[in-house]
Amino acid sequence: MRRLKILALCCAMSLCAANVSSAQVSKLYSQVSSDPKISAALDLMDGTSADWAKEAILGNNLSGMPIKIRFRNLGELGAKYSNYDALGWKTGNQLHIFINQKHRSAPAEALASLLSHEACHQDEYNSLEEETYAWGYEADVWTQMKKKNPAMKNIAPGTYPLVDRLNTLGRLLEASNYSTGKIRDLVYSNPGYTGLPVHSPGF
């Protein structure tokens, strides 16, 4: 699973810059999800580094189609996925992001950060370096979300498992001087990634 090429990013027209109407945005969102929580998360991506992820979700990705997003019991896809926070999935040419249903009550800011991670995964390949990039991107977006809404900084530990995860990633990002050094260590030692190659296309 890979990032879009830099040239494609430069040539792609930003949804914001294109002055897309609210009706057009609503139509695009409807192709992604009917869940208002997902729509709220997509809205929060505007004006942050998650702009790229939002465009990818709305169709500027390797499939050329909007990514479909929904909450789901990930154990239905296999016992090994039951505790995943989210999962990128591909059926034919259609990309999906399935968010663990335990995160349904998480703040939209946290969901926006998680979706930014999953938007990096756009094909059937994965690697340790791809996950390192995606985790770092997720942490960076969360840092920005907390600046946009300082109330996110005051959420007590244990309130939302997803926020706890994001705060851990944020601390690792900060401890590495906003690089992915410590996040890379965590990814490489994660038993869930055992057997992944170091590199995948684009990473």
Rank of each mutant, 00 (worst) to 15 (best):
E131C: 11
C120H: 03
Y125A: 08
S113K: 04
L173G: 01
S127T: 05
T132G: 04
H117I: 02
A112W: 03
K147Q: 15
D164M: 08
E138C: 14
W142R: 01
M145P: 02
W142N: 00
P161V: 04
S116K: 01
T168C: 05
T132K: 07
E124S: 13
A139C: 07
A119E: 07
W135T: 02
K147G: 00
E174G: 00
G170T: 09
L162K: 05
H117L: 05
G136N: 13
T168Q: 14
R104T: 11
A139R: 04
A108E: 12
D164Q: 07
E138Y: 02
M152D: 08
D140T: 12
W135V: 04
A134F: 11
I155M: 03
M145G: 02
K102N: 13
H121W: 11
E109W: 01
A110F: 03
L111W: 03
G158Y: 08
Y137P: 01
D123R: 07
Y125F: 13
K148W: 09
D140N: 06
K146P: 01
C120P: 00
M152H: 10
E131G: 04
Y125Q: 13
Q144Y: 08
N126L: 02
L173V: 08
L162A: 02
T159V: 11
N154M: 13
A108F: 12
Y137S: 01
M145K: 05
S105F: 11
L172Q: 14
T168A: 14
G158P: 07
P150E: 12
N167Q: 15
S105Q: 15
S127L: 06
L128W: 09
L172G: 02
P150T: 10
A110N: 03
E118P: 06
L173I: 09
A108S: 15
D140K: 10
L128M: 12
A110P: 02
P157F: 05
K153H: 12
A112T: 05
M152N: 14
R165C: 04
Y137T: 02
P161D: 02
L166V: 06
H117P: 03
E138H: 04
S176G: 14
L111Y: 03
S105C: 05
A134T: 14
W142T: 01
L169R: 08
